[in-house]
Design a protein around this nucleic acid. Structure first.
Lengths: 214, 214
DNA sequence: TCGCTTTTTTACCAATTGGTAAATTGACGA
DNA sequence: TCGTCAATTTACCAATTGGTAAAAAAGCGA
């Protein structure tokens, strides 16, 4: 039923079609505008008019490049998933366990700082029950988490880090790092103005070191 | 424990307006339905029709009890803030520092388990930049956090817990506990079916103990 | 029961929003 | 320079949505 040339399943990101210079530029503009708007208002809260205004294009012109509001959102989510998985993928089984985990925490925190919109887009999607991302979580996220959980469990069993439930450890890393992006509005109220990220980096390194050192 | 923990705070505009039995019942129905719908879809994503259907009332009837969609949302947020602050307020300056903090973590986790809709309602609001809650955060949350941060800093300075930035500690407690409610859709994909909360409780107690013990 | 108030329903709106059709303009290779 | 296809605009819709007016129904004290 699905046309391989165009949709080929929920996992789709790279162009199977060659795009003109104008197409490349305008698709990028649209996706960037959509990221801005979707991350700030959620899927339902965002309007095509907002995205069009942000992109500097007309609404029908937006729909010339994408099949609809949902198609833009899905495209964004697909691209995001790869970026999102990357820091965890980089965790090296051959490395020094504690340092590998600490480095992962730092990469995640760096991402929250560098890409807060992406973090919020993701948070919005999961908060609403992952209606457009469920398959993605099963097919891409779960296998990776299973693999890394096994790795961490191995490190703990070998006494190279303190005993710990690897999945809850991963959750706590996600939660604490993404918090600074997702709950920025609250953090900004509670922390004296000025970058909270240096302090966060120090705090989180300390926390996970104390927790995991043998 | 009838009034003990609740009647003390005359924050809600409950006085002066005496409500009939029907009003009391229907307002409660509406607020409960609205909590369900707002927490699942966000403010913009929720419709009065959905709330009306969930409440078993007609849309105009909903508007007979509340001035509008926003008024329902604000009422919910106001009620929520008190519930939300309560676990932190209970942290006792006279208690044993480490046990007080661990107990706070458990209370927060209990709330995430017992009131996931409230957690998501709050998360939605903050994610969108706290458009209807900004003043509340400044007026109610900030003073309480400042006070408890001072308390925790005192404990650390006295060597009764390990040195730690109290605000980042609080953030990490919020982030890790609320994660199980807010990111439930993701957690359910990654954890073998069956309650994750017992495991979470054990994990979080271990983590914060290791982090804070002197 | 009567008469008044509270509650609920019916019948609408105006604005917004995602989306489309068709005409118009622009890019660019031959 | 021209012809053609890509890109954009103009002018619309139909559905949804928050909200209202007014009539009908239900409560309820006397």
């Amino acid at each position: 039923m699905k046309d391989a040339g165009k949709s080929g399943g929920p996992l789709r990101a790279q162009p199977a079609v060659k795009r003109s210079r104008i197409q490349t530029r305008n698709r990028k503009r649209i996706l960037d505008a959509a990221l801005e708007v979707f991350s700030a208002h959620g899927f339902r809260g965002a309007t095509l008019d907002q995205i069009a205004a942000e992109a500097g294009l007309s609404k029908p012109n937006i729909l010339y490049y994408f099949d609809g509001k949902e198609a833009i959102h899905v495209t964004l989510l697909n691209q995001l998933m790869e970026t999102w998985l990357d820091p965890l993928e980089q965790m090296n089984p051959e490395g020094e366990p504690l340092e590998e985990i600490i480095a992962y925490v730092q990469r995640k925190l760096d991402m929250a700082q560098a890409y807060p919109r992406e973090s919020r887009l993701f948070a919005n999607e999961i908060l609403q029950g992952a209606p457009r991302m469920g398959p993605h979580l099963e097919k891409r996220l779960k296998p990776l988490v299973d693999q890394k959980a096994t790795l961490i469990a191995g490190w703990a069993a070998a006494g190279r880090i303190a005993p710990v439930d690897p999945r809850h450890l991963i959750f706590s890393i996600w939660a604490t790092t993404q918090h600074y992006a997702d709950f920025e509005a609250q953090v900004n109220v509670l922390m004296p103005e000025g970058g909270v990220f240096p302090g966060a980096a120090t705090y989180l390194e300390t926390m996970f070191r104390r927790m995991l050192k043998v």
